[in-house]
């Protein structure tokens, strides 16, 4: 039985910024470190975490049936094929909207806390009921955002709500970073985003085509191709979450060659 379970909300406000991909990869990475981990798909209206983990055909029950005492928790939990420390729990059935209340979410998370070290809650987009339910059961949060104005603005709204509900710590993951665009100052920089949102950076994830390939297969990047740029980033995020001191890389500094040197020169602050 686990004590001191960490319950982490993974949220963004805006949809499509990479919450579910981060949840899947963090789940795999934590499980790989020997930690029993549950990923809870709180986005039951448009659930996708099962698909990214390749578990879509193995869901029989959801948290809904557990709460209604139609099945036991371990019957609803779907164990990952390769990574037995990881289990998925869908919150509910897409056909059954509106049934879930913040207290239901709290109850289900309390049950998960009894047997897992880590509970990651994949939050639905938006700031409405789905988000509030997911937030009710969480202790700390990871905000996922992209270096784009709309994603940063929405993240700011969510941070405000997390602050009022005393969720802490709240850490930032900057996803889909394109070093070249940042170097040519056609993309908000890491500092721009962390300054504006005033959050500590847990990590950044480089834009990587392999992410799409991995979702096609239903095998998160961190499961196999640990050499892809994004997979390395996810792994570093997991390690930092566990308290390891992994230095952040500056994506602009990382790029080398004459082009990169020239771009750095152009970035030099004159005044």
């Amino acid at each position: 039985m686990a004590t001191d379970t960490r319950v982490i909300l993974i949220c963004s406000g805006k949809g499509g910024v990479g919450k579910t991909t981060l949840t899947a990869n963090l789940g795999i990475s934590l499980a790989r470190q020997g930690l029993s981990t549950a990923v809870l798909d709180a986005d039951f209206g448009l659930r996708n975490l099962d698909l990214l983990l390749g578990l879509e055909n193995r869901i029989v029950y959801t948290a809904q049936e557990v709460l209604e005492e139609e099945c036991r928790l371990d019957q609803a939990l779907v164990k990952h094929k390769q990574e037995s420390n990881l289990s998925l729990l869908p919150a509910g059935n897409p056909r059954m909207l509106d049934w879930l209340k913040p207290d239901d979410m709290k109850r289900i998370v309390e049950m998960l806390k009894e047997q897992f070290d880590y509970v990651l809650i994949d939050c639905p987009a938006g700031v409405e009921d789905g988000f509030k339910n997911a937030m009710a059961a969480s202790q700390e949060a990871i905000i996922v955002t992209n270096p784009e104005v709309s994603a940063v603005r929405d993240a700011d709204r969510v941070i405000g709500l997390l602050n009022t509900n005393a969720i802490k710590p709240v850490q930032l993951v900057l996803n889909r970073v394109r070093p070249k665009m940042m170097a040519s100052q056609e993309m908000l920089s890491i500092d721009d985003v962390t300054d504006i949102l005033a959050l500590p950076l847990l990590g950044l994830v480089l834009e990587d085509e392999q992410v799409i390939v991995s979702t096609n297969r239903g095998e998160p990047l961190t499961l196999n191709s640990v050499n892809s740029p994004a997979a390395k980033c996810y792994l570093n995020i997991a390690k930092r979450l566990l308290g390891e001191d992994i230095p952040l890389i500056d994506p602009v500094e990382e790029s080398s060659g004459f082009g990169a040197k020239f771009r750095r020169l152009m970035q030099t602050k004159i005044f």
Binding site: E186, L188, D192, K269, I270
Partner: peptide, 26 residues
Amino acid sequence: MTLRDIINKLLRRQPASASTARERLQ
């Protein structure tokens, strides 16, 4: 202001969009 900003100003080109994004966001 960066070197790029100055060159853009001299050539009367639009400034790099990141600074515009930052100002609009703030």
